[in-house]
Nucleic acid binder design. Sequence first.
DNA 1: CCGAATCCTTATTGATACTG
DNA 2: CAGTATCAATAAGGATTCGG
Lengths: 228, 228
Amino acid sequence: MPTAVSDHYLMNKRTYNQFCPLAYSLDVIGDRWTLLIIRELMFGPRRYTDLQQGLPGIGTNLLAKRLKDMEAADIISQQKLPPPAASHVYTLTERGKSLQPIIMQLAEWGKPYLAEGFQSDDYFSTVSCMSALRMMFTPEKATGISATVDISRGSEAFFVQVHRGVLAVQTGLAPLADASVRFDDLKTLLMLIGNPATRQQAQASGMMTLTGDETVFDSLLGAFNLPV
Amino acid sequence: MPTAVSDHYLMNKRTYNQFCPLAYSLDVIGDRWTLLIIRELMFGPRRYTDLQQGLPGIGTNLLAKRLKDMEAADIISQQKLPPPAASHVYTLTERGKSLQPIIMQLAEWGKPYLAEGFQSDDYFSTVSCMSALRMMFTPEKATGISATVDISRGSEAFFVQVHRGVLAVQTGLAPLADASVRFDDLKTLLMLIGNPATRQQAQASGMMTLTGDETVFDSLLGAFNLPV
DNA sequence: CCGAATCCTTATTGATACTG
DNA sequence: CAGTATCAATAAGGATTCGG
């Protein structure tokens, strides 16, 4: 009964009650966690538990509520996965995808605060890392580099490919990767981009595990630039 | 002692604890009311009570807290007014002003929700009205129009000037206005833009009071277009 | 395991009254 | 005017439970 969802959305929701497009926007996406949920969906569909992983601290009841509200507002939709996986995923609708430029601008605006002083125990979401890699990619440094590397942490994985000056960052494992790296904290990857020479030290200290072609991984690091 | 303010900011504030520029943005401007406060400051400095008027429902304690947090985050600043007015105002800092494009995009994104179905008791903030007028101004329709009109509601006032195809919307009263209109609800002004022929009816019903040159006011209405 | 629903505690907010 | 103080109403956070 879809009416129940709509009713829930229309009835028990706090609103600014202002005749103003900004206020209406905020009524829809201004609640705590909402924009971060959308960020988590920006690289493709995610399951409920994937979202929980990417958003530590959200609390399962709140995540469920947000997902319902967002579905009622038509910014995400729930989709069933084909038979093998007896599960379903959440996806951005067109309306949800249209928030991407806003999210990018907000991220750009927030960079100084992050740079000024982040807490060492800050969680680095997989999606946030993928997004960061896209931003740090430097085409001029990528000439001659051809590398496909799987990156994983815990049960999450994505891969990065640089080939002929083109970057691809995607969820999941690459069909044919040159190397695989595993981190406990993805911030280690940023550290390596800033200082590639510390790779062996990172391996020795157990901060990362690298299998496959090490030189390809090193060359991949060269295609990125840590923002000053 | 500015340290006290900073301490307050750093210490008792809920944060996402995510290494992500978007999360840091939202730590700063993601709280309820914050972006609407910034909207209220977009047309220039405002006093505490002005802000209260533009944000019905905020509660004075919360407004005070937000203002402190925003000052600590360097997006607004408090300024003393010169002697005659024994008062002070809040202004956007450069960092605060740099949020303007984001706010505009958010407003653009929210338009459909507003158009679909707004509540008739929604409050139409003066600032929101000023902003709407800017968006609805249609230069092609403004040729030949020269009008300066004061607009007021309650204790708030601003003026609109169209001259040689240029629009100016500013807080306060114009030094030399052709006409003055007063509304109980500024949505009436939008109605007049959509249907200028209803002006006399609006006056007769007491929804608006018009003094000065009526034909100039009518010509002014012609310079705007209600979005379809 | 996945995807929540429930219960309970804490934090934030909203409304009102009050003060320098 | 420009806030504080107080207190009730909500929302968020955390742990546990429960049905596919």
